[in-house]
Amino acid sequence: MSGPNPQGHNWSRKSDEEEDDPLDQMILRTGCAAFHYAVQECMADHQDWRRCQQQVQAFKDCMKEHQKQRMEELQRRQRLA
C-alpha cells in the first residue's frame, strides 16, 4: 500500500516512460482516462481487484460507450464513401 500523500496524486504529471506508453495514449484518446486512473488507484489502495468492481465497471461502461460511438462513426463514413 502507498503511504500518505498530503498533496494527493497529480495525474497530469507523467514521467517520460508513461508519456510514451501506447496503452496510456490509447486510453487518453477514448476519454476514459479518469475511470482508468480510478481503477489503478483502487488497486494500489486495496491490492485486490474484487474490491474495485465499481471502478472496473465504470471504466468498462465508458470504454463500451466509446466503442459504440467509434463504430457508429465508421459506419457513417462507409455510407458516405
Rank of each mutant, 00 (worst) to 15 (best):
R70F: 05
A38R: 03
A33D: 10
E73L: 08
S2R: 13
K68G: 04
L23T: 14
E19C: 02
Y37M: 10
H66M: 05
H9I: 15
R51L: 14
Q40F: 07
S12I: 03
F35D: 04
P4W: 13
Y37H: 08
D61C: 03
K64T: 10
K14A: 08
W11D: 09
L28P: 03
C32A: 10
E17P: 00
H66S: 01
D45G: 02
Q69W: 02
E72Y: 07
R76W: 11
Q69Y: 03
C32Y: 00
L74F: 10
T30S: 06
E18R: 07
R70M: 12
F59Y: 10
E72N: 09
E73S: 06
Q75L: 15
P6D: 01
Q78T: 09
R70N: 05
Q40E: 07
Q25G: 02
P4Q: 08
K64Q: 14
S2C: 14
Q47F: 13
D20S: 09
L28K: 11
Q25K: 10
Q75T: 10
C62R: 02
Q57C: 03
N10Y: 08
E41H: 09
A44M: 15
P4V: 12
Q40K: 14
P4M: 12
Q69S: 01
K64D: 13
H66K: 04
R79P: 00
R79E: 07
T30M: 02
A33H: 05
K60F: 06
E18D: 09
K64F: 05
L23Q: 11
E41T: 06
S12T: 14
R13I: 13
A81R: 15
Q53R: 11
Q47T: 09
Y37V: 00
R13M: 13
C42M: 04
C32P: 01
A34M: 11
Q54H: 07
K64I: 04
F59R: 02
N10W: 07
M71S: 07
M26H: 08
R77H: 08
M26Q: 06
Q54R: 14
D48S: 05
G8A: 05
K68C: 00
E41M: 12
C32S: 05
S2W: 13
Y37P: 00
D20C: 02
E18N: 03
D24L: 14
G8K: 09
H9G: 11
E17G: 04
Q54M: 06
R13Y: 14
R29M: 13
P6R: 02
N5C: 09
E65R: 11
R50F: 13
A33G: 04
H46G: 06
E73P: 00
K60P: 01
Q54G: 13
N5P: 06
C42E: 00
D21H: 07
T30F: 01
Y37R: 11
Q25Y: 03
E65L: 02
M26I: 10
H66T: 03
D21V: 03
E72W: 07
S15E: 00
C52A: 04
A81G: 08
C32E: 01
G8V: 04
C52N: 01
L80D: 13
S15L: 07
Q75N: 12
R79C: 02
D48F: 12
G3T: 12
